[in-house]
Design a protein around this nucleic acid. Structure first.
Lengths: 281, 281
DNA sequence: CGATCATTGTGCAAAATCTCACAAGACAGT
DNA sequence: ACTGTCTTGTGAGATTTTGCACAATGATCG
């Protein structure tokens, strides 16, 4: 009989691509992963990986096995979700994945309300651009700016926000519009509505700073580097930023609340979901 | 993250119903199962079993989790089959499940031929009435007398055999037909063709011995207890048994060779399957 | 070209896990 | 009522597994 733990370690290796990455994911030492993979190979007497000097590469057999095993991982996560959903108590740690700006400005400041109402619930707020996988239980709830297509996930539109064009008050006073400089995301965000909106407004005028991080954009704008497209929930509450009118129709984005179907009914998850709705209203 | 080994132990407990049985199945001590189940409960902070004085009973949550996990076991076996099928060598242990009579009389005597042709293949011959589960890898190949319906299994009819009515030569000589006594299976086999055939022949005459085991029937017949319906491959080769004609059309049964779809192409399995076909021809 | 970073491999001590032996209790058959 | 069998529970020793520190090697970047 196959040792399930060996299989788990091997599947992590197959997914992550290296011993070290798999070990990090599993929270063990890389040596352990190496040993368990070796043990699995021995137990089924089949070579699953090619041990190249600097990397582990799956053999053909290894890929086949990993492909089948992937379904096992799926089910393991389903078990985990079922366990979580079965808890009737309003406690435990609930993790929320959200874009950093939403997390910092709209959610974090109001967290105390949630703590007061549900003292048993611990919140883990993950502000990251990369969309966390709810299926892998990297987060229980997620806020995203577009509707995900993945099956098994429930998405509900819980709000929207507009972008505005902002500059530092002094900058706007001293600079003639034809000389405006602009601050934008880098090329990886070129297909987002707010980026297109900004580049259209900029026209032939220069984009002098590109940064992935919205907070960086805001900071640069405050410092008088130029004009940036910022969410109004960020810009309107900051006196060091001033919104300037444009003739373009303002762009807005929807905010979706995502929860895995299996977790939808868990009381703690419902409570936090309700809180997030309030935050976005 | 859930420990897959814990889950495995819990699922074994859920399926077997007791610590000891699960431990036997897994090849570990019962204490280990108890500890791992407790560890799983602790890690998801959910009560999965009720520890009654003499038994472990699944809670509702435990049943839910076990139901989901069953699919995980399925997949684990699929991995095992894939591993086995991937081996290109003609070696390893192949287990065959077959009705005891077939195993003893038609297969076992010819096993040396197989050993000579494929010295690397070790055979495990399981002669049992209970049909082994090929999906759970209790056997690699199975011979059965009817076509199974379970999905994932490949069935091929590889032969058939007739039943005859046998008695000891002296018994047939000394006993007038109206006084014949009969030997049959017990009531659990009443719906098999050979049993119905025998009871029709017996008519109002007495059935003096009922036994599940065909070898017992044969032994009793040789000893002059009465007449039994025996496969001709058994009766015709035994000089202590004599077949007597009946006016009824003789009954015959088909022999099916069953193999799991995933294992069909494994060389060692193919080799043994071919051997079994030869045995039945 | 050199420095830094990330990868895998090895030996040993520490920690966790398992098994074993025994105990206590329930149930069945005699 | 009594043995025999099958449960689960407890504690201690032995085995296995793991983690750590270090080494070696290749890749990347300035």
């Amino acid at each position: 009989m196959i040792d399930w733990s060996d299989l788990h370690h091997f599947l992590a290796l197959a997914r992550e691509g290296s011993l070290s990455a798999a070990a990090r994911g599993l929270g063990v030492d890389h040596v352990t992963v190496a040993r368990r993979v070796a043990a699995l190979e021995a137990s089924i007497s089949l070579k699953l990986v090619d041990r190249r000097p600097r990397s582990y590469a799956l053999t053909e057999d290894g890929q086949r096995i990993a492909a089948i095993g992937a379904q096992m991982e799926e089910t393991a996560f389903a078990v985990e979700r079922a366990a979580r959903a079965a808890k009737p108590e309003l406690d435990g740690e609930i993790s929320i994945s959200a874009p950093p700006s939403l997390a910092n400005i709209l959610i974090a400041p109001k967290l105390m309300q949630l703590r007061r109402r549900y003292p048993g619930i611990l919140i883990k707020l993950i502000g990251e651009k990369r969309t966390a996988s709810l299926s892998r239980r990297e987060a229980d709830l997620a806020l995203r700016l577009s509707r995900p297509t993945q099956p098994g996930l429930i998405a509900r539109k819980i709000g929207h926000f507009e972008f505005g064009l902002y500059g530092a008050p002094s900058y706007l006073k001293e600079t003639p519009p034809y000389a405006f400089a602009f601050i934008a995301y880098d090329a990886s965000m070129d297909d987002t509505p707010q980026q297109q909106w900004l580049t259209e407004i900029a026209g032939t005028r220069q984009i002098v700073l590109r940064t992935n991080d919205l907070e960086n954009q805001a900071a640069a704008t405050r410092a008088g580097v130029g004009l940036a497209a910022l969410p109004r929930f960020l810009g309107d509450t900051d006196r060091r930023l001033e919104r300037c009118d444009t003739d373009r129709k303002p762009v807005s984005r929807e905010v979706w609340l995502i929860v895995h179907n299996d977790l939808r009914r868990a009381p703690a998850v419902r409570a936090v979901a309700g809180f997030l709705e309030d935050c976005l209203r």
